[in-house]
Simulated assay, not measured.
Amino acid sequence: MRILLASPRGFCAGVNMAIDCLDECVKRFGPNIYVYHEIVHNRYVVDRFTRIGVKFVDHPDDVPVGSILLYSAHGVSPEIRKAARERKLQTIDATCPLVTKVHLEAIKYARDGYNIILIGHEGHDEVIGTMGEAPESITLVETPEDVDQLPFGPDAKLAYLTQTTLSVEEAATVIRRLEERYPGIEHPAKEDICYATTNRQDAIKALIGQVDLLLVLGSQNSSNSRRLQEIGVTTGKAAYLIDGKAELRPEWFEGVNSVLVTAGASAPEVVVEEVLEHLRQTYGATVEDAITREEHVTFPLPKELRVLQAAGA
């Protein structure tokens, strides 16, 4: 069996920063700290921190007064920040800077009197946080059909934003429908879908034609990982989204000579290596690196931690 190992894959700069942030917090304050929702959408990562005592919560009210609360990479709404202040929590913000960019755009457009159309998936942590910045000004859409149901007139003062982890193609179809219906709609100068999401999708599109099967390492609640699996499905190839080697099934590989392996932006490299080793041992697989683009983006730790580092705390 021939394995094409896609690159870029796995952790993006925002995920790296968020995980490094939580590791640093554990190192400085001990494991008795809290995280609002999952630090990133990956079961392996969340389980690792849970085992050492980190607690993941769904609301600041679940955190003891005065404790440390870390905001996840997906961002939070002003309502959550207010609730944390009321409980006198020491907060550390590990929101991905690219998500923060979307929040700031939402605030600006709302302040300038725009109705904002947010393209994204209902219930996703990032979408909830963004909509919380200006709930009276934001309407969520997911499909071109949703655009057709919008109540705004053709001359309404509108702007659109997107969730950072969408399928590039799916977002483009919604944007086209928006611009057809509302030719004057505004949008940010730089698109909101993040570089890592785009790069990982582009890698699959470039490589999928060379293989029989696609394996995506990532969790089911990871939006960017699910989009990678969907690309494989839309090309007619078998495509599976798995957390690790325990989910592999022998029947997937019957008659399969070549496999493309990648990982979502929140999936650690260790789970990729475990899958590759399983394929080597079970099928005598050989692995070829397939590099479509190089990434050199990094984000600094949150300012709260940088201040402590500078003070030698």
Rank of each mutant, 00 (worst) to 15 (best):
V45W: 03
F299M: 14
D212R: 00
A285T: 04
E247Q: 15
S266D: 00
V141R: 01
H278P: 06
R227M: 11
Y34V: 12
G132W: 00
S222H: 05
E136H: 11
Y71K: 04
Q201R: 12
R2M: 03
I231Q: 00
G236F: 05
N199T: 12
Q220I: 12
L217V: 14
F49T: 02
V40N: 00
I39C: 09
P151T: 14
T235Y: 01
A110T: 08
T234G: 05
T50L: 15
A156S: 14
L150S: 11
C12W: 01
S225K: 04
G113D: 13
R177N: 09
Q163H: 11
E288V: 15
V45E: 07
F11T: 10
Y240L: 12
I204H: 04
P151D: 14
V272D: 03
R176W: 04
Y44D: 13
I208M: 08
S67W: 03
I3E: 02
T162A: 06
L166K: 04
L150P: 06
K88D: 08
I128E: 00
A84W: 00
H278V: 15
P268S: 10
G255V: 08
H41N: 10
C25L: 14
A189K: 04
I185R: 07
F56H: 06
H103A: 09
G184Q: 08
L207H: 02
R48W: 05
I208G: 00
G53E: 05
V256N: 07
N115Y: 01
R227T: 10
G255Y: 06
V233I: 10
T282N: 05
M1N: 03
V15S: 09
F29H: 15
M17N: 08
A238Y: 02
A311F: 02
Y109T: 15
D155E: 12
Y283L: 10
D93F: 00
V57F: 04
G236S: 10
S7T: 13
C12D: 09
E122H: 02
T298P: 05
A110R: 03
E230S: 01
N199A: 13
R51H: 05
Q201G: 13
F29G: 15
Y36D: 03
G66C: 06
E186Y: 06
I117L: 08
G75Q: 02
L4A: 07
R176S: 09
C194S: 11
D243N: 13
I117A: 05
Q90V: 11
G66W: 01
S223E: 07
I175C: 07
A246K: 10
R200W: 09
A246L: 13
P183N: 12
K88F: 07
P268C: 08
Q281P: 15
V297E: 15
R81H: 10
N221T: 09
K101R: 14
V261Q: 01
G218H: 07
